[in-house]
Simulated assay, not measured.
Amino acid sequence: MKPMYDLIVVGSGVLGSFHAYHALKKGLRVALIEKDKMPKGATIQNFGQVVPSGMDTKWQAYGRESLAIYKEIQSQFDISIRQNGSVYLASNEEEVQLIEELSHINQSNNYQSHLLTKQQCLYKYSCLRSDYVKAGLFFPEEVTVEPRTMIYRLQEFMIQNMGLKLITNTSIINCESTPNGVSLSSAANEDFLASKVIICNGSEFKNLYPKLFNESDLEVSKLQMMQTKPQKNYVLPGSILTGLSIRRYEAFYECPSFKSIKAKEDPHSLEKKWGVHILFKQAADGSVILGDSHHYAEAKNIDDLGFDLDMDIDNFMIQEAKKIIDLPNYEIQNRWYGTYSQCKTKDIFEHTIDDNIHIITGIGGKGMTGSAGFSKENINKIFNRKE
């Protein structure tokens, strides 16, 4: 007889894995099913920045909960979490005004942040250009992760310490409720049975419920990123977010001056055309991750985004990055693009097929930061359990 699980999660990226984690924390029997040998989508194709500071008030709360969860797990098992803070670097007086306003908002939210003078920024961040930075806003509680290793270590922790059943190389092609629960079938004619199912993978969502998928307001963003060669004897601590990030991230939408400042921007600039904002993060091997850009297409038309890297975009990002930090070298060893799905009208896609089958996807760029906290609340809701 096939084992009966309390929950099967389809899709082992960060959103699916943390749904599994919180269900396991409640003592439930959980299986996590992955169509590939390992997750290889947005979860590993991102910067690895956990930055609640960039989110609106609702998602900042999820992000702050995520920080606590990451740190709790890291205290027991190395999943690559480094608490080295995040900084937003203002390059002109308008951006200084925005970080000052965000600082006041965070004071009212009881979220710790520190305004930095120009000299403090130059002292803290080596090779930061004096002709770029005017001031900074630093968030000491925020962390970075190594996205290409974190998810695998998290799953290893859940297998070793929490009893997770991880099933890989298994593509689910049928999902339906039965009198005994939810029955799943794979392309290899394997059957699985659970009390409840959560589908967190866009591919399975598209294959299992094509009409619902095509009628959804999901869109896909394609982001280009780069990795320099290791920087010898150079340390760039934490996540570095710059003036274009200040003008893009949702947290700043809540600042009183945001609309008037955004209205002055050139709608025909290259950063607007390509959705560029400049980020830096030093990886564990000393290399620096640079990016990123944003192109959008409806999820059902994802192929419209193409499969190539646009070198004009990469060259523009390097050109802009050099105006901000004089890295010892800008030799690029890796270039790639990642994709993530998001909703046009909502902050995440949630749909209940029936009481026992739930689709949760389209978390967008909030995945690494918000998934752990959001999943905790969502598991409570799905299983009607209070903290």
Results as ranks from 00 to 15, higher is better:
Ile325Met: 05
Asp312Cys: 05
Asp326Ile: 07
Asp131Trp: 01
Lys222Asp: 11
Gly365Phe: 03
Asp326Met: 05
Asp6Phe: 04
Asp6Val: 03
Glu142Arg: 12
Lys322Met: 02
Ile261Tyr: 12
Thr144Asn: 10
Leu223Asp: 04
His294Val: 02
Phe349Ala: 10
Glu204Pro: 04
Trp59Met: 08
Lys232Gly: 03
Asp78Phe: 05
Gln112Glu: 10
Lys37Gly: 13
Glu190Asn: 15
Thr361Tyr: 09
Tyr5His: 06
Ala68Tyr: 09
Ser245Pro: 14
Leu98Phe: 11
Asp304Met: 13
Ser113Glu: 02
Asn214Trp: 04
Val197Ile: 13
Glu298Phe: 06
Phe157Met: 00
Tyr62Glu: 09
Ser183Gln: 09
Ile198Arg: 06
Ile302Glu: 15
Gly362Met: 05
Leu208Asp: 09
Ser53Arg: 10
Gln319Tyr: 05
Ser80Thr: 15
Ile79Trp: 02
Ile313Pro: 00
Ala23Glu: 14
Glu156Gln: 06
Lys344His: 12
Tyr62Trp: 12
Met38Arg: 03
Asn92Ala: 08
Phe383Glu: 13
Phe77His: 00
Val145Tyr: 03
Ile379Leu: 08
Ile382Lys: 07
Ala135Thr: 07
Asp312Arg: 08
Ser186Ile: 07
Asp310Val: 06
Trp336Gly: 11
Thr345Asn: 12
Lys346Pro: 07
Ile325Gln: 04
Asp303Gln: 07
Ile324Gln: 00
Phe157Asn: 00
Lys322Arg: 01
Met225Thr: 07
Ala61Pro: 06
Thr57Gly: 02
Leu102Gly: 05
Phe47Ala: 12
Val50Gly: 11
Val288Cys: 11
Lys196Asp: 10
Met55His: 04
Ser185Asp: 03
Gly136Ser: 11
Asp285Met: 13
Asn180Gln: 14
Thr57Cys: 02
Ser12Pro: 00
Val197Tyr: 02
Phe374Glu: 01
Arg335Tyr: 08
Glu387Arg: 01
Arg64Glu: 13
Leu279Arg: 06
Ile357Cys: 04
Ile332Ala: 04
Ile173Thr: 14
Met55Gln: 04
Thr242Asp: 11
Gly364Thr: 02
Thr168Phe: 00
Val235Arg: 14
Asp6Leu: 03
Phe47Asp: 05
Ala20Asn: 05
Lys232Ser: 12
Ser260Leu: 08
Leu241His: 15
Gln112Val: 09
Asp303Asn: 06
Glu142Gln: 11
Thr228Arg: 00
Glu100Arg: 13
Met162Gly: 05
Ser195Trp: 06
Met226Phe: 13
Ile151Pro: 00
Leu122Lys: 07
Pro237Lys: 15
Ala284Trp: 09
Ser103Met: 02
Lys386Asn: 14
Ile332Lys: 03
Ile159Lys: 01
Asp191Pro: 06
Lys40Trp: 08
Leu208Trp: 10
Lys344Asp: 12
Ala194Trp: 10
Phe383Val: 10
Tyr340Ala: 07
Lys229Arg: 13
Lys281Met: 14
Ile172Cys: 03
Leu15Asp: 01
Ala90Pro: 00
Asn169Glu: 12
Ala90Asp: 02
Ala135Gly: 06
